[in-house]
Simulated assay, not measured.
Amino acid sequence: MQFFPIHTRLIKPKEDYLEIILEAMKAQSLTFEDGDILILSEKIVATSEGRIVNLKEVKASPRAKELAKKYYVDEKTVELVLQEADEVLSGVPRILLTLKNNMLMPNAGIDHSNAPSDHVILLPKDPWISAEKARSKIMKRFGRRIGVLIIDSRVMPMRMGTIGLALGVAGFEPMDDIRGRDDLYGKMLLVTLRAVADDLASAAQLVMGEANESNPAVLARGAPVMMTDRPIKRDSMYISPDECLYIRGFERWNWGKKDRKREMP
């Protein structure tokens, strides 16, 4: 499997990001082959959509001011988080834990990094539609059967640092269900589903970087994925809170913590 970083100039709001990527690929002598996956940073897509907000134009609500004071977050950023998030669950100093599009993420995906001064970048309006549009445009122009993946970074519970997260997928199956297969010792696998799209997102993050590398796209070749032309269901990568190991586990741990406190002399 190979990953080719695609280096571009700085992309401005409302510019056609895909045309800029294709120009950069041509300059790097990169061409599409059947089975390739074009992996896109969510920021390049969001910037092209004009999803950049000037914080000076944001007015914080009383609720935003309350949360900002509690979690030491800029109140205007909190206001945008309240507007973008499906739900604000909790937080730690400088970060709110939110639920957006059935995913746990900090600050509803709103980011100050790689945005102009006094601005923030929101997530793309609909990464799934954006991925499918990009795939269709490339397939029509080049006649190649490819996949498109839009990604962001995330953190894992009890782990330092960021890894990749798939936000939108088109052209390949994002999950590999290997339940029913045997392991090395002939025991049947009962619960294992491989998060193929998230795995690719993490690998691409290493190549893209998250600072001033200016590699907002990566071409993945030889990835062990199943290509498909069917529309990918948005819920194919999600799990309900009632089934989530972390949500249920933390909920029970928190209740146990309260019980232990009550038992203390």
Results as ranks from 00 to 15, higher is better:
Gln83Arg: 15
Arg94Leu: 11
Met105Lys: 09
Lys59Met: 15
Leu30Pro: 09
Pro93Gly: 07
Ser90Gly: 14
Gly91Arg: 06
Leu55Gly: 06
Ile39Leu: 10
Leu30Arg: 08
Ser48Ile: 04
Ala85Asp: 10
Leu97Pro: 05
Met105Pro: 03
Met139Lys: 12
Leu89Pro: 05
Lys125Asp: 02
Tyr71Ala: 07
Asp86Val: 09
Leu99Ser: 07
Val58Met: 07
Leu99Lys: 12
Leu99His: 01
Thr47Asn: 10
Met103Tyr: 10
Ser117Leu: 09
Val78Asp: 00
Ala60Leu: 09
Trp128Phe: 14
Phe32Tyr: 06
Ser136Thr: 09
Tyr72His: 14
Val88Ala: 06
Tyr71Leu: 03
Val81Asp: 04
Ser48Gly: 15
Asp86Phe: 08
Pro116His: 07
Lys26Trp: 06
Leu38Lys: 07
Ile39Gly: 07
Asp34Leu: 01
Pro127Lys: 09
Glu66Phe: 04
Phe32Asp: 01
Ser41Asn: 11
Trp128Arg: 12
Leu55Asn: 09
His119Gln: 14
Ser117Arg: 12
Ser136Tyr: 00
Ser113Glu: 14
Leu123Asn: 05
Ser90Asn: 15
Leu82Lys: 10
Met25Val: 14
Leu30Cys: 12
Ser29Lys: 14
Asn114Cys: 08
Gly50Val: 03
Pro62Lys: 11
Leu38Ser: 05
Ala27Pro: 04
Ser29Glu: 08
Lys26Ser: 13
Leu96Gly: 08
Leu80Cys: 09
Asp34Arg: 05
Gly35Ser: 00
Leu38Pro: 06
Met139Trp: 00
Ser29Thr: 06
Ala68Ser: 15
Val53Arg: 04
Pro106Cys: 03
Pro116Leu: 09
Glu75Tyr: 01
Glu49Gln: 15
Val92Trp: 05
Val58His: 04
Lys56Gly: 15
Ala115Glu: 08
Ile110Asn: 07
Glu79His: 04
Phe32Ile: 00
Leu123Gly: 02
Ala64Tyr: 03
Leu89Trp: 13
Ser136Gly: 02
Thr47Glu: 03
Val92Leu: 13
Tyr71Lys: 01
Ile44Leu: 11
Asn101Phe: 05
Arg94Ile: 14
Leu55His: 08
Asp34Phe: 00
Met103Trp: 06
Asp118Ala: 14
Lys69Gln: 13
Gly109Asp: 05
Pro93Glu: 11
Ser136Asp: 09
Glu23Cys: 03
Asn107His: 11
Lys137Asn: 13
Lys137Ser: 08
Pro106Arg: 02
Gly109Met: 06
Lys100Ala: 08
Glu84Ser: 12
Lys43Arg: 14
Lys26Thr: 14
Glu57Val: 07
Asp111Met: 10
Arg63Ser: 11
Asn114Tyr: 02
Pro124Ser: 02
Val92Ile: 15
Pro106Ala: 09
Asn101Glu: 15
Pro127Met: 07
Arg135Gln: 05
Ile138Pro: 03
Leu40Met: 11
Glu49Phe: 04
Leu82Phe: 11
Val92Arg: 12
Ile37Val: 15
Ile95Leu: 13
Val81Ser: 04
Ser130Asn: 01
Glu79Phe: 07
Ser29Arg: 13
Lys26Asp: 12
Lys70Met: 10
Ser61Asn: 05
Lys140Pro: 01
Lys137Arg: 15
Val92Phe: 12
Lys69Pro: 00
Lys69His: 10
Asp34Tyr: 04
Ile129Val: 13
Ile121Pro: 06
Glu84Ala: 12
Thr31Asn: 13
Val78Asn: 03
